[in-house]
Design a protein around this nucleic acid. Sequence first.
DNA 1: CGCGGCAGTACCGGATGTTAT
DNA 2: AATAACATCCGGTACTGCCGC
Lengths: 333, 333
Amino acid sequence: MTPRKPTLHDVAAAAGVSIAAVSFALRDKPGVSPETKERVLAVARELGYTVNLPARSLRTARYGAIGLYLPPGTTRLPYYTEFAFGAVDAADRLGLSVILLPHRDPADASPPTASVDGYVVVDATTEDAGIRGILDTGRPVVSGEHVVGADERVSGSVVYDHISATTRLLDHFAAAGARRIAAVLPPDGAAWSEEVARGYADWIARHDGVAITRRIPFVPRPDDVTAAVDDVLANEDVDALVVFPSGSAAPALASAARAGRRVGDDLLLAAYVDEPSHALLTPTVTSFDLEPRDVGAACVALLVEAGDADGPADRVRITQPRLVVRGSSARER
Amino acid sequence: MTPRKPTLHDVAAAAGVSIAAVSFALRDKPGVSPETKERVLAVARELGYTVNLPARSLRTARYGAIGLYLPPGTTRLPYYTEFAFGAVDAADRLGLSVILLPHRDPADASPPTASVDGYVVVDATTEDAGIRGILDTGRPVVSGEHVVGADERVSGSVVYDHISATTRLLDHFAAAGARRIAAVLPPDGAAWSEEVARGYADWIARHDGVAITRRIPFVPRPDDVTAAVDDVLANEDVDALVVFPSGSAAPALASAARAGRRVGDDLLLAAYVDEPSHALLTPTVTSFDLEPRDVGAACVALLVEAGDADGPADRVRITQPRLVVRGSSARER
DNA sequence: CGCGGCAGTACCGGATGTTAT
DNA sequence: AATAACATCCGGTACTGCCGC
């Protein structure tokens, strides 16, 4: 019923050559005459031959697979899904598979079991047992953003220039007339927290302004945002506000409305990380498109180069977030 | 420098037995005495032995991997990410890996190349070249939701009871006093579209009501939602509204506000698919938690059973969405 | 004698049927 | 009748060497 999948032997027999010749022909290696190669390829196509990857892996000790580790607990953020598919598509173009790795509970110190040639991780910290396990495999690892606590242990990273981005955003506010700009920041400890905090502080210092900041969790509940924004609006004389953590835009808008502020007019607002909802809120919310697909693809590219001889030219690739200006920061007339 | 990874041979030599004995001992197969087994296991642990998966795959023709195919173009919906990790965690507990499959462009008719024992697909239609390729492999396929156009070709499915869910939602509205309930539906063609449309129509008929419906795209732009909801509110005398497609809640709330309706009071509103934003909007929005993690895990379980001898007891598993009542449908006082 | 083109073959690491003890 | 050693095989890869010109 099921005619066994054709193997190199079948192709070799059908083409009247040795399996070695077939193997070479299929992989476009020198040592076979153009005519034989042509014939072998024709026969292979006709028989529907495809390589048996386990067999190849066994021989070459390469797996044709990349392990992808997304941060635990944040699976609702669309950023990571986009990132994942950027990586998957890039890997596919290189003939590689992407294995989605499970999150390990902190007690579990066992090494990751999947057979992969290297890893791509995002927003990683060594607090995470899964990340430690990955670093301990000794295989190449490329990270999206820096790895907090072990940046020298990865083969490469694709990072955002958050300082420049923050600067551009504040310049944009200033150009729209903002004079007193507050920032609702994530807590220290995450890779980008410190960069954006520094970007903000430096910009304020350069412009002889007053730093007005509040801290809320990395993934805040609406109440956290509301409390911080209410506090800023009640106690500080601000005409612009940046909320950095994800999911902050909607509660911030609500707070502004309650405080009687007209967002986009007497209060300029921006979120940092773009989310689909930003285009749906009223007013629409200015934020940075981090182009996660491109970054995911870049991580895969860097990983593959790291596996190649003598590594890539650059260990760190820097990406500029793209500012998407929307109604919340576009002062009316 | 790198002490080659230990193999069966190494363990066998260190334990003073044959590789066959080691192989049997490690897989807990009969034919080795308890003492030898104990010793072998100890040596294996000490040497840090792990099986070489390609070698095992080569011999057994099993890959220890599952291919996961998420619908293209909807990668921003958190549902699928949750689903994916439900599948990954379930697979991990069974010692399996999950390979995230790339989306194929329609022209590409080549079979999927990844080596997997079976596939999990979600919200699939045979319009999708990727799905056709997967079905053509002849390997077991389990689908989350029915596969439009090829439901008999899959080994199993985990589906929601959308009719019962829709009924429960409308009952909830009625209990809160709603008399004229409108529905903004997705277009026909998707698996659940027809079920929810039927659930709505049947319920209305049973209650001698008037069906008031509009159709918008499966993944609507805010404008689509706004237009439909504005139209309903302007031209129909409704006191409750269900918006089914994802991402509809926020624009629907905005429309209601513009029409001068107080949502949760003189207009009851519910979305169908729960999203994180529903807990953040004002008012918060009632919707169904589809528990995607559980469904992803169930798909993997069903796939593994399908691979076993004589298949699973049931080909189709039915799940009840969990209604999460929030402010938008909880009439004040 | 050198060289291109190809056949022959020794692995890669584990699973399993067969043969000793 | 139980255990364990031995031999094969899974499908490729890559090295060695033979052949003819």
